[in-house]
Computed example of a mutant assay.
Amino acid sequence: MEKSDNFEEYEDPILYDKENEFYRDDVIFLEKWAKKSKGIIIDVACGTGRATIPLAQKGFNLIGVDLHKGMLREAKKKASNLNLQIEWIEQDCTKLELKVKSEFIFSVGNSFQHFITNEAQDGLLMSVNRHLEKGGVFIFGTRFPSSEELIQPASDEEFWRSYIDTETENKVDVYTISSYDPLKQVQHTTTTRKFKNWDEEVVDEVRTNISLRYTFPKEIERLLTMNGFQIIYVNKDWNETPLTEDSSQMIYVCRKVKNI
């Protein structure tokens, strides 16, 4: 991701893993494409290696790139514990200089939304283009800008979900407050995590802020074309379901057709 105030949401990499490590739909999908490529695979905005590490465990050669020191530190620790040889690189993904080209680059976890300006989106796609071989594949996901999601007025704190902390085995309730800026197409969200004890009493609270860009399908189509990509297809999920107007996600599979 590019450097921004969004770092706040990722200041606790261990908490991030507790809440996200279980998700594997994208990894299963990426493995199918990894088998079609040769050489190094690049995970852009890799975070703690949620997708990088399981692909490396399957025998693929991976580079993970991110700008957040803490997330990369945790990724390195996890890979070392598993004796995996993954190259972890701290760089701004809008200005990549990896001195290597790949047949396959991906970015998951809706990381595309962290590039909230037009310049940042172009920078990301140009960086990916420069590091892809001609005919190489770029796969990324981003949330679908549905009217249901975006036309709602700024809300009071709303309950989102609960989960069980794997370390303490206690419940964590998660609440959010969101507001959408239609001029910038950016949604600002404050997330509050309320940690409970065995008696269901709140014993700690953590509050973080994040801002995410929503980009419409026709915008992305133009962005990709301008930056040397051809869309192979776009789906609504990692199970290859075609995109519909009621989608919550957009999964793009693109091919580099020209240098930028």
Rank of each mutant, 00 (worst) to 15 (best):
D5V: 15
F7M: 15
E9H: 11
L15S: 14
E21S: 12
D25C: 02
D25R: 08
I28K: 13
K32M: 12
K35R: 14
K35L: 13
S37I: 03
C46P: 03
I53E: 01
A56M: 05
A56S: 07
G64D: 09
H68D: 13
N81F: 09
K99G: 12
K99P: 10
S102E: 04
F104T: 05
S111N: 11
F115L: 13
I116Q: 06
A120N: 05
Q121H: 03
M126H: 04
N129K: 00
F138R: 00
T142P: 05
R143D: 11
R143A: 10
A154E: 08
F159C: 06
I164S: 02
I164G: 01
N170L: 00
N170K: 05
K171R: 12
S179F: 04
Y180W: 05
Y180D: 04
H188G: 11
K194T: 12
N197C: 03
E201Y: 10
E201R: 14
V202F: 01
V203E: 03
R207F: 13
T208K: 13
S211F: 10
R213F: 11
T215M: 07
I220C: 02
T225W: 06
T225N: 11
N235R: 10
K236Q: 15
D237K: 06
W238N: 01
N239Q: 12
L243T: 01
N259K: 03
N259A: 09
